[in-house]
């Protein structure tokens, strides 16, 4: 697989946190509309890879090109703006603002982009409908179940119509049934908007929702398509 036509390409990423080497020459690429699972044992650097790809953490070395633009040349504000408008994020937990209602949480990225409150909440509600959680718009995250909360988080990640969705163990805190439903809704929604999904997971059944997988071990990535 050549990186050409790829939406997001990373080569030779290196990142150390103090004495620990999180990434040691990792590569990655993803096409629009593709779902790529990033697997690997805990501490292998898969989350760090996601953080680097999403421009949350600048790598120590290596290049990341998003849509032809080199991320290393962007400053923090530009990368933040990119994350706001082009990327969406779902984490394992702790990402919903507890004091905002669910619909306000979903509307938050739109509002950060300057959309008016009314319009943002209207769009948010339609996304919540797609994720089958439109009934809990007025509740606070603390008052809904884990599965509902995670769907709210997915709705929030998708509400801006991102071109890349980054999901870090999105079902980590959910049981099988809820986890699978969230994965179905997530991948369906992403496919319908032709968004690429970077799916970090250690669960094979979650990874099975991907088109392709990458394994990260000791900071090195391995594209499993090329093995065969």
């Amino acid at each position: 697989m050549t990186p050409s036509g790829s939406l997001l390409v990373a080569e030779g990423l290196r990142k150390t946190y103090g004495p620990t080497t999180a990434l040691d020459g990792a590569d990655f690429s993803i096409h629009p509309g593709e779902v790529v699972a990033v697997m690997g044992p805990s501490g292998s650097g898969k989350s760090t890879l996601l953080h680097c790809l999403a421009g949350i953490v600048p790598p120590d070395a290596g290049s990341i090109r998003y849509d032809g633009r080199e991320m290393a040349t962007m400053n923090d504000a530009q990368r933040s703006a990119l994350r706001r408008s082009e990327f969406g994020f779902v984490f394992q937990f702790g990402q919903l603002v507890p004091e905002l209602t669910c619909v306000e949480n979903v509307a938050l990225p739109l509002r950060l982009n300057g959309t008016s409150r009314k319009a943002a909440e209207r769009t948010a509600l339609s996304w919540m409908e797609r994720l089958e959680v439109d009934g809990i718009g007025k509740k606070r995250p603390g008052e809904v179940s884990g599965g509902q909360g995670q769907r709210v988080a997915v709705a929030r990640a998708l509400v801006t119509g991102p071109r890349v969705l980054f999901a870090d163990e999105p079902t980590g805190a959910l049981d099988s049934l809820n986890g699978e439903r969230v994965m179905e809704l997530l991948t369906d929604a992403a496919r319908s908007t032709n968004a690429a999904v970077v799916l970090v997971t250690h669960e094979a059944r979650v990874a099975a929702y991907s088109d392709r997988e990458i394994v990260v071990r000791d900071g090195k990535s391995r594209d499993m398509e090329r093995v065969v």
Binding site: A204, R205, A207, A208, E213, V215, R222, M224, E225, V227, V228
Partner: peptide
């Protein structure tokens, strides 16, 4: 890894 890939393909 090859086996793993095959497994995942099946999955």
């Amino acid at each position: 890894d090859t086996q793993r890939s095959e497994h995942l393909r099946m999955m």
